Amino acid sequence: MQHATLSAFLKEPGTALAKGPVAMIFVEDQIEVDSAIRHHLDTGFQSVLALMPSGFPLAPDVSAAVHRIPFDVAAGDNYVDAVNKVIAAAPGLWLYYCFNAEYLFFPFCETRTVGEMLAFHTEERRDAMLTYVVDLYAGDLDRHRDAVSLEDAHLDRSGYYALARNDPDNHNHPRDRQLDFFGGLRWRYEEHIPVERRKIDRISLFRAQPGLQLRPDHTFNDEEYNTYACPWHHNLTAAVASFRTAKALKRNPGSTFDIHTFKWHNSAPFEWHSRQLLDLGLMEPGQWF
């Protein structure tokens, strides 16, 4: 279904915001748009909103299954503002956001839906879920100059770490159950990445509530939403497998000529399976088995 504007969609969403979880996919370029949308449809989202430039094509099967909304990041449209508008229009619904060439994985996602996973997470009195953005990259940049290949995708199997997240309003003491996570291409090529964009943690899955606001650093104005677990035990976490950083590093004139391959001794082929991410410690099943 096609909509004239985001405001027009939110004014008359029909059944798109009647039941969650709802996925928002922000399309920045024409790379792996259809595959990203299909992946999230298969994951079990009740509705998928494709916020994308009007001139970008979609495969017929994808176009028929999503709510297409004109949106152009390159022209200055701000995805943070768009997420916050959807939050205001959908109180109580579980929402998710990502970009094209990104793919959500969670424990046991091959046999369970995102709705089943979030139902369990809700029973644990959690309203948000931490996701790690795991960088993917093509193994052969001579064949895949945009660094994107689903068949030749690789990831880093080590090099991830966390630092305390200090609270400037509390004498810079560490925030309770909050950490800043780093690793992947943003760590290995940090000289090409602005400091404020080096973190790999993102609260991609969250339940909308009145007054909730996403901030540009992928955190929320409700600090409990930014925690990785509740106070009494470990909770579920998920991962977003993403070509976004690899694309940017190869597109940017300041970095593309310095990078002939992203592979190193700790690269491994990506298996497109949650078991690999669990084994690498890149997501946590918590109490869900």
Rank of each mutant, 00 (worst) to 15 (best):
E32W: 11
E32N: 13
V33F: 02
V33L: 11
D34I: 09
D34M: 12
D34T: 03
S35G: 11
S35L: 08
A36N: 08
A36G: 13
A36D: 02
A36P: 11
I37L: 15
R38L: 00
R38A: 00
R38W: 00
H39A: 03
H39I: 02
H40T: 00
H40G: 01
H40S: 01
H40I: 00
L41D: 01
L41T: 03
D42S: 15
T43F: 10
T43R: 15
T43S: 13
G44W: 10
G44Q: 08
G44H: 05
F45L: 05
F45I: 02
F45N: 01
F45E: 05
Q46C: 12
Q46R: 13
Q46I: 11
Q46M: 12
S47I: 01
S47T: 15
V48C: 10
V48W: 05
L49N: 07
L49C: 04
A50S: 13
L51A: 12
L51P: 01
L51V: 08
L51E: 02
L51D: 02
M52V: 09
M52K: 14
P53L: 09
P53N: 07
P53V: 04
P53K: 05
P53S: 06
P53W: 07
S54V: 13
S54P: 00
S54K: 14
S54A: 14
G55K: 13
G55D: 08
G55P: 00
G55S: 10
G55R: 06
F56T: 05
F56W: 08
P57Q: 03
P57D: 00
P57S: 09
P57G: 00
P57K: 10
P57W: 02
P57V: 11
P57H: 07
L58Y: 07
L58E: 03
L58W: 06
L58C: 07
P60C: 01
P60W: 04
P60V: 02
P60R: 15
P60H: 10
